[in-house]
Write a protein that binds this DNA or RNA. Sequence first.
DNA 1: CGAATGTTTGATGGTCATCAATGTAGGTGG
DNA 2: CCACCTACATTGATGACCATCAAACATTCG
Lengths: 260, 260
Amino acid sequence: MRILPTVPVRGSPHAALPLRARDAQSGSCSGCSCGTTWLSSGLDDGDLGHLETVVSARRRVARGTMLFKAGDPFHAVYAVRSGCMKSVVTRKGGAEQVSGFYLVGELLGLDGMGRGRYDCSAIALEDSVVCVLPFPLVEQLAHERPSFQHRLYAVLSREISRNHNVMLLLGTMRAEERLAAFLLSLSSRLARRDHSPFEFSLRMTREDIGSYLGLTLETISRLFGRFRDAGLLEIDQRKVRIRDHAGLKALLSQDEALAG
Amino acid sequence: MRILPTVPVRGSPHAALPLRARDAQSGSCSGCSCGTTWLSSGLDDGDLGHLETVVSARRRVARGTMLFKAGDPFHAVYAVRSGCMKSVVTRKGGAEQVSGFYLVGELLGLDGMGRGRYDCSAIALEDSVVCVLPFPLVEQLAHERPSFQHRLYAVLSREISRNHNVMLLLGTMRAEERLAAFLLSLSSRLARRDHSPFEFSLRMTREDIGSYLGLTLETISRLFGRFRDAGLLEIDQRKVRIRDHAGLKALLSQDEALAG
DNA sequence: CGAATGTTTGATGGTCATCAATGTAGGTGG
DNA sequence: CCACCTACATTGATGACCATCAAACATTCG
């Protein structure tokens, strides 16, 4: 196996966590569950064993700071180990949009593979820790383990599918439906991580949500109010409690309900 | 090399073109330039040589018919050899949206790798021919040729980047900007295929364009009128002639122009 | 040629952005 | 501990932008 190129630490001045680096190099990364979500389903244990050799280090990202910036050279993919991140695309004109939120166990930075440069910036929504997966190593491991390879294709492709859903959301849904879809998606993603699907805390601001959904922060705020009044959910600042899951779902297929 | 699994022909009843199948199996696919666009840049000739072994067949797709349907099992990726295709995502509610247009030389079907099923349908905008790239073979070739592998990652990742741009478009641009962006993108993609960037013919209806841009067909029609009146372009039905390329570009960075 | 499909153009209104003002949490230093 | 400050959230008033509905026109195709 080729020697690990030291991963250049970029972006935030906080740098990598040196205290865990030795663990990582020895292949332990104990307690790091980052692999179990994005590559595990469908993998046998043998493949998971190899994943550890890819996790070369972890890195702490303080709230509000950038893990990487659009235009930075692409060296690694990251898995969120704790905390929460957002990715932001920027237009030449200067307009920005949140292009995704990344919860514990989810992967970010995949978009950088194409040009060799990240095309969006990653910013921590709260103090977070990510696992660094240097791309040359990912590539090599993929080459050695066909099932890992397959899994990697799947991850990339699923990112494309996810984007299709966002395009549908932005292109065809009205504000209410967008927020309902967003909340349901968040809920199910959290549920996958042994979190309650009905009670959680938003890590992002109304503005972030609005940007992601193509709406303004005021509209988001009003919608939360409307949802509360309709008995769909309770909301206190960022604490959300879903009261009527079915009701939220019903918002999505409204047109069908009327048509049928 | 493993034996080529016969590619199951799905979707349209038109099936594969038998007359060229022999060519393809012998590895010639003469005149098929589909590979030269999506995998060529940056590849040496040696790799291109291998591409031919992947192109197992071509398939004719009549205007308005489906190459594959959302939910169909994923077996192959397709490269447009002639004609033009669109992809369509469908919501459970029934709402549809055009998620992309594919010109000669471009790849479609990548989104199917994740779940093993296509998550959008591909429909021909005019009588078209596609090259069939059976996925097991693509995978195998990628495994054998690291540079091909790399190229494949790049293609997938670039699709993600492309989607980010569409999300930006749908999330932050107003109708005028969206159409300008669309026309400029089309223009530059055609230019890459030795086509004139200033004079071309739209293969899709106003409704398709509207769906893709998150607008209605009437809005598209009105915008074309406005662009014509502003001297930005000439348009006669589907024939477009760009008269003021800079003017179109200016529409995109409008806010910046005002801010700066 | 007729029928189907796609396009243009007009009138009207809904949805959501914008502007503006007030209210609330969370952190910091006196 | 309180006062303060900053960031975030709520709520209201107004109108822009674009969807919707409707009708006439053009083009393509069988």
